[in-house]
Design a binder for these strands. Structure first.
Length: 110
DNA sequence: ACAATGACGCCTC
DNA sequence: AGAGGCGCCATTG
């Protein structure tokens, strides 16, 4: 990996509109990094607190959160998402409303 | 150099 | 729905 790969990931995450989410895999592709979903996870994990990067908008495939449902981190991410209007269906983000193919995203991303 | 470890994803029972 | 298995790849011990 090059230092710029990390920058590409950060950039892609920063471009996720408020109130919507993107999966790790989608971020990897949008950043031009192919199938390196795990790499995206690594970058998120290394983010210093207060970096300003909306890491909570990055979720696993299918809308699940990467953290164990009983963990504080899971609760934190879910709260952050719900605070900006993201709906949950059970323990999954409602991707029909907030996923990359949602109507609003189509307008913002083409 | 090598094995283990993840903020992943997809497929198969 | 849930559990395993495997591919993935940078980091860590």
């Amino acid at each position: 990996m090059s230092p710029s790969d990390e920058a590409k990931v950060i950039d892609a995450v920063q471009h996720i509109p408020r109130g919507s989410v993107a999966t790790y895999g989608e971020v990897a592709r949008e950043a031009g990094l192919g199938r390196r979903a795990r790499f995206v996870g690594q970058v998120m994990a290394r983010l210093p607190p207060g970096s300003g990067v909306p890491w909570h908008r990055v979720v696993c495939a299918g809308g699940r959160l990467a953290f164990p449902v009983d963990s504080p981190s899971h609760a934190r991410q879910r709260a952050a998402l719900e605070a900006e209007g993201v709906r949950f269906v059970g323990q999954r983000v409602d991707l029909d409303r907030h996923g990359r193919h949602a109507a609003l995203d189509q307008l913002l991303w083409g």
